[in-house]
Amino acid sequence: MTGARSGAAGWGFVAPALLWTLAFFIVPFVVMGAMSLATLDGRTLVWGLHPDNYVELATRAYLWRAIIVSLEITLTVTIVSVLLAYPLAAIIAFRVPPRWQRLALLLAILPFWTSYVVRSYAWLLVLAQEGIVNRALTGIGLLDDPVRLANTRFATVTGFVHFFVMLLTLTIYANLVQLSPNYRRAAMDLGANAFQTFRHVILPLTLPGIVTGAFLTFVLCIGDYVTPQILGGNTELTVPQVIMVQLGRRANFPLASALAIVLMGIVTLAYLGCARWLRLDRI
């Protein structure tokens, strides 16, 4: 009786999360999967088990190229963001006095407070040929003529990195401040210099935080439409941009769904690749 009661109580506690997952993940995923196996007859949707969209994915050069472009941009953004965020988080965690750390974090995430779209357009102006970056570089004599920065992959990566450095700084900082200072003291007592302490003690211990932040960056970046659309100038297309093209005029939901399933597959592979280090409790 007690066991049955506690079992019912357990299900009672779990039920809201289960219902939430069922309603907002499982059901949409099943619908999207079914839609990816549907096809269009002219402009009419035909349900069924048609592999057409996946065949098209395998044979259409621009679709493959979109997947490759998305992966290249996402990996670049993830790596650059980690390389920039780690030192920033370390400075805040180890160099900034504790009473100022909250303010330092606030300043680090201040750009989060502005609209994502507005921030992207602002970057477009900053990176324009007559923008502040080109003017500064030509003004100090580093460049003779302005260079093309806007509407390039560089612009897309810059816009992404600006956003994700903030996110990664938070996740890595949360990890760093949980580290007991005794680890560093012990390493130094044993004769390790600062680099060795970092390489053999701090880095391995903070790896879960780095991987968790990097995984979040990967997931958010590969599915983002706004930044490449505004800053990339459509000089190359990512998967979300191709999805939008399919929906915009032709309402080709089946092919768009197949592309979305591929994106989910890539994210799943990324998860499996770093599951060993993922520690969401470190965020």
Binding site: Y121, L124, L125, R148, A150, N151, G233, N234, T235
Partner: peptide
Amino acid sequence: ASVAGVVAAQTA
């Protein structure tokens, strides 16, 4: 140099 929507083309 770019393939742009309405706002981006105007801005460019």
